[in-house]
Every structure is written in C-alpha cells, then in structure tokens.
Design a protein around this nucleic acid. Structure first.
Length: 680
DNA sequence: ACACCTCGAGTTCT
DNA sequence: CTCGAGGTGT
C-alpha cells in the first residue's frame, strides 16, 4: 500500500518547529508571542496528526518531551501532601457506621452536605502545577512516595500543560488516569489485526501504558483523566467546600467528572450509590464504586485522618461482578505430595477484569455441598478480587437427568493408580510413589524460590526432562545430561549454561532450604527452619528418633512421625545419596551468623503484615521481622502485637485487627518500629 | 476435650 | 485468599 503521508509529514515538521520556538519564548525568555490558547491549539493539531499517523511520531516531538526530562522517568517523588487511600464500605450498614463514627467526632454532630462521586477504576496520580505550568506528575505509589511519570502524563491530551491566569500559583491536582472503553476496544482491535494477544482489561492496560519507558507509546493509548481533589495549594481563590474545589478545577480546564452530586443526607447519598450501581454498565469508562465526602472543608479538617485514610470520606465498593458460564467438566490435579484437587473446567468467561477458564473446587465435599455437575450453568466470581470461585449451579438451567459428579477412582496420569481418601481426611491422595504427576510437583517444589531456588528450571522444562527420562527423582537434577539437552530444540549454548550455573549455585543453599526441597509431608518453610536450627545437620536429623524429633518446640508426634518415616524409606535414602556432598553437609549456622548481627528490636513481638510494603518483597517483610527477633505469622490473632498495613491491604486482616483493638501501623511507623522497636 | 494459634498447600492470570 | 489440619495451652 502506497503511503499518503507526505502532507501530514510536512505539517508535523512545521508544527514541531513552531511549537519549539514558542515553547522557548515562553519558558526560556518568559516572553510569549502568542496567547496560551493558540499555543495549545498548535499542540492539539500536532497530537491529532500523530494519533492518526502513529508511524510519523518523532522522538523529538514536543508531545513527547515538552517540559519533561525523560531521564527522570520513574524516579521517586515525595508527595508534598500524602496521597491517602480511602476506607471501604460494602453495604448500607457499613456506610451508616462510617457516618456515625464521623458524627461523634464532630462538635456539631452534623456532617452537613455530602458530595457523591463515582469511583473510577484507574490509577491515582498527582499533577503539580507551579506558576500555572505542569511541572511534575507522579503516581500514588505508597501514598508518601510515588514515581515520576511527567513525560508520560504530558502525552495525555485532556491534561492541560498550562493553566489559565486565575489559577493558584502552586496547585497539586489529584485524579485518576483511566482508559476509556472506546480506546480500550480500539487498542484491542489493533492487537487483533496485528495477530497479537488482546489486553485483559482497561485498568491494567492504563497502568501498563503509564509505565512505558517510551512516552511515544503512552501517547497512542488514548488515556484520559478525572480530577477529583487537590493536594498542596498556594494562592488562588479561598475555598471552603469540596464542591467549590471541583468547580475550580473545572474552570481551570481540568477534566472533572459530570456524574457528581452534592446531597443533604446519607439517605440521598445511598440513592446515589444505588444509582451508580445500575449505571455501571452504561458508562464509557469503568467504575468500581462510589465515593462519599463531607463537603465542608472546615469539617474535614476537624475530622482529620487516621494513619492511612481520612475520616471525612468513605468509598463504597460495588460487590464483585458475578457471571454465569457453562461448567464443561470437573478434572483433578495432582500436587507434589500426591494430593488430588478437583477443579472446574469452565467455558471461558470474562469476569472481574480477566478471563476465567479454571477454578479450584478444593475437595470432594466442597463439590458435593455446592452440588455442581458437569453440564451445569454455574455462577462465577473473583474471591478477593483475584481467585476465581464457583458459587453454585443455576438449578433452573440444569438439564434433566444430569448425573451427580463422582470423584474419579484413579489418578489422571498414565499409570492410573487409585485415588484414595482416608477416614477423617478431606482430601484424596494418589499414593503411587512413581507417579509422574507427583514427581513433576516435587521437582518444581525442589526448584522453587523458598527451597533450592533453581532459576531456569520451570514447569515446562521439568515436564520435558521427565518425559525424556532425564529426571526420575530430585537427585537426577545434579546429573543432567547436558550434552543431550544442548541438542534439544529451544536450548542454546547460553540457556544450557544458565541452567547449569543455577543448579551449581543451589549446592550452596542452607539445610533448612534443602529440607523444604525434600518435600516431606507436613513440613513447610517454618517447620524446616525449626528442625534445621534444632539439629544443625541433615545427618543428625536422619539419626533422630521420633521422640527426639517431637521434642522440638512446634513439632508434634504427627510431624515427627512423618519426618522419621521419610528418612526410613529406602527409596528416599537412595535419592539422598544422589544429592551433592555440599548440600548434604549444609548446616544451619551460616545463615544465622548474618541474622545475629542485626539488633533484635522486635524480640517478643508478633507482627502481621497485609499488603505490599515499599522496599520489600512479600516474603522479605517476614524475613526482616524474623531477622530482628520478631514473629511474622500470616494471620491476625489476639497474640498479634501490631498489624502493618501496606499497599492494597486485605480487608479481612484489617477488620479482625480493628475488632481486637490491635494497633495498626502504616509503612513509616513500621520502619520506625523495625529500627527502634518502639510502637507509636 | 476444646479453643485458639499457626502452618502448609493449592490456586488464577498477567 | 481460603481451607484443612497439626501443635499447644487450658
């Protein structure tokens, strides 16, 4: 196809030159020749041309670079005023509870007018305008520190680069960047044409678009923004209500969502919530709830904030989306210890932001209790926003005579050995020691991050090596036939070297990790550490009696028996023979030496963490707590000293901690706690 | 014997 | 995240 772009190409060059000139007059000489509106018009024309002809976008185009130094992209930015998150309410009752709490705190005991807004499903950002010029844009991050995304934000056409003369001297605007459904569909149509994978949902795609290293890509994604509050403000008109703030933003040319209402009572606010729920699917963008704010700023100030959220606002979260789909069949998967778990094979359905084709059914009793049968139409949703869950069948749609599902009698692997369920157990097990499914699970477990941490040995390769007969137990990992692997398709010199190096490195792992890798029933990370610490070497653990094992604090008769049995087995002894000497001689002392060096600030404390904490991986937080002498269990109980709330916290832990009156710490308070051992 | 902690395992999709 | 099950203390 002949390109018909000469006209556009020339015009783009001309625009780039003129914009560059006026930009220079404005910023460098502070002596603009043309009015702002005319300047913006030039930029808009350029942007339109570029949108129509993405292949003509030049890296030096001002739409990509105006005012932004690309080298600062994603650099940390400390917010002058923290970007707080909101407390959630899931029903009317919780909404009432919020209002009651707030009222009790006020001298006047009246919240006054309430502003109702939609809650947009996008990414919270902060735009900082200094002297009416957009100087810096940042993500929310953890609320205190975000990432610089100025270069990318400048490519969003609905965000003004400059504000009119009546704007405050310093204005921090908070808003939600989102991808309109039309832009999302257009993008996916393009992906289809290019034969590429579709994007899953607008929210994640918007996030991905803002995270581009190359702003030219962000520019083509059709992102937009809704502005809904301010941070730091200097100069400008005095404001005394939130609705006046929104009006100001609107008059400054910042996009403010029109679906906003100021109401006089909680009843009216609830009506807004109910309406937003029914409107949800008619909107050209996605929402995940509604937000209710106290309108008067003096009352907002009086109410103040907790460590993580203001008391003057609450987010109503829409219930998770439910969809119906066909239950095609119920299969069984075999875990690394032989556990047989039934799961639903579903007709793929888009629910809660992603396509779901499988969902666990846990065990036989769960299937029976839900009474779901292959051929049923079932209701599906995302539990906790992530894990797909089958709620139950739509009985009205059940075909006549649909048979009840029976737990399969044999393992799905070619050996077809029986699956058995013992009295008192909820699970079925495949007890065939040479079951290839179990072997695959064991090898993967051995290579996993919390065990011997062997990179480049993932599920695909494990399957392949088992099929080819290279591996028939974990011991074989250390005598892989590299000559033959080199000849396999998809294995180059480099990938073989990487794999070999990763396996070599695993020989240095600690005793506890080796124990984890051995895949002994009832032993996980924690119990393995207990054993490693108590006995110091594999040899001593192997030589211990059941009674000696059970003497360890935290090890009871059942686990002791399980460990004893494992090492009694001849098959397992042979496997251990195959392991490299370095591993077998691994002791628990090396790792501890480092740990002891840290001040034991958390001695005697039990710290539970929910959500991600800045600067740590999920496991890393627990390790940091333990390294300082504290305990870090996965759930809140009456023994918990404090709950640390990070990014995207889980509701259940938070709720329980509040009910039990356990102190709740934000990330800054957690940092202080770790360093000094002091609770706020 | 019971209640209450903890721990472990399996799990979805990008 | 949720469920099931082992360990510990009363």
């Amino acid at each position: 196809m002949q390109k018909v772009t000469t006209g556009a190409e020339d015009r783009i060059s001309e625009l780039i030159e003129r914009i560059g000139y006026h930009n220079d007059r404005y910023h460098v000489h502070d002596d603009p020749e043309i009015p702002d509106a005319e300047f913006d018009e030039l930029v808009r024309e350029l942007r339109e041309l570029e949108t129509a002809n993405p292949e003509l976008i030049r890296p030096d185009s001002p739409t990509q670079t105006v005012g932004a130094d690309p080298s600062t992209l994603f650099a940390p930015v400390e917010h002058r005023m923290p970007m707080m998150s909101l407390d959630n309410a899931f029903d009317r009752e919780e909404l009432n509870a919020w209002a009651d709490r707030a009222r009790r705190r006020l001298a006047a005991e009246d919240l006054g007018d309430l502003v109702c807004e939609l809650k947009f499903d996008g990414l919270a950002v902060s735009l900082r305008y200094v002297n009416r010029k957009l100087e810096q844009a940042a993500t929310r991050g953890n609320g205190r520190v975000g990432e610089d995304i100025t270069a990318n934000i400048l490519t969003i056409s609905s965000i003004p680069h400059r504000l009119p003369g009546n704007a405050p001297d310093v204005l921090e605007v908070r808003g939600e960047v989102y991808m309109p459904l039309s832009a999302f569909e257009e993008l996916n149509a393009e992906q289809d044409r290019a034969g590429k994978a579709r994007y899953a949902n607008p929210r994640n795609t918007a996030a991905g678009s803002l995270r581009q290293k190359d702003p030219t890509i962000t520019a083509t994604r059709g992102l937009s923004i809704w502005c809904y509050s301010v941070g730091e403000v200097q100069g400008g008109p005095a404001l005394d209500t939130h609705s006046a703030t929104l009006e100001l933003l609107d008059t400054l040319g910042l996009p403010v969502n029109p679906e906003t209402a100021t109401v006089g009572s909680l009843d009216k606010a609830w009506e807004f919530v109910v309406r937003s729920e029914s409107k949800r699917h008619g909107l050209p963008y996605e929402i995940d709830g509604a937000v209710i704010k106290v309108n008067r700023l003096d009352l907002q100030e009086e109410l103040g904030a907790t460590s993580r959220a203001p008391r003057w606002a609450v987010a109503y979260k829409l219930p998770p989306e439910e969809k119906t789909t066909k239950l095609l069949d119920i299969h069984v998967s075999i875990g690394g210890k032989g556990k047989a778990t039934p799961f639903a094979a579903l007709e793929p359905v888009f629910v809660g932001g992603s396509t779901v084709a499988m969902a666990t059914l846990h065990n036989e009793d769960q299937v029976r209790e839900k009474d779901v049968r292959p051929g049923d139409t079932v209701v599906v949703r995302k539990a906790g926003d992530v894990i797909p869950e089958v709620l139950g069948p739509v009985l009205a749609d059940r075909p006549d005579g649909l048979p009840v599902w029976e737990f399969p009698e044999v393992c799905p692997c070619p050996h077809q050995q029986p699956l058995t369920r013992q009295e008192g157990d909820a699970a079925h097990y495949c007890r065939f020691p040479r079951c290839p499914e179990q072997l695959r699970g064991w090898i993967e477990h051995f290579a996993a991050r919390n065990a011997l941490d062997i990179e480049h040995l993932g599920e695909q390769r494990v399957r392949l090596f088992i099929d080819l007969g290279f591996i028939s137990d974990v011991g074989d990992i250390y005598s892989l036939p590299y000559d033959r692997i080199r000849e396999l398709e998809g294995f180059g010199e480099l990938s073989v070297a990487n794999l070999a190096a990763a396996i070599e490195a695993s020989k240095q792992q600690s005793l506890a990790r080796l124990l984890v890798g051995l895949n002994i029933r009832h032993l996980g990370d924690t119990t393995c550490e207990l054993l490693a610490e108590a006995f110091g070497s594999l040899e001593r653990i192997m030589g211990a009696s059941v009674e000696e094992l059970a003497e360890v604090d935290g090890i009871g008769p059942i686990i002791a028996e399980s460990v004893y049995e494992f090492f009694l087995s001849e098959v397992n002894q042979e496997i251990i023979q195959k392991l490299p000497k370095e591993l077998l001689e691994a002791s628990s002392s090396d790792a501890e030496a480092e740990v002891e060096a840290l001040p034991q600030t958390l001695e005697g404390m039990t710290i539970v963490v929910t959500g991600g904490v800045e600067g740590y991986t999920r496991d890393g937080v627990g390790a940091a707590i333990k390294a300082r002498g504290g305990k870090a269990p996965g759930s809140v109980s009456s023994k918990t000293t404090a709950l640390v709330v990070g990014e995207n916290p889980g509701a259940s832990k938070l709720e329980k901690a509040e009910k039990l009156g356990i102190p709740i710490l934000d990330e800054a308070q957690f940092q202080r706690l770790i360093e000094t051992g002091e609770l706020p």
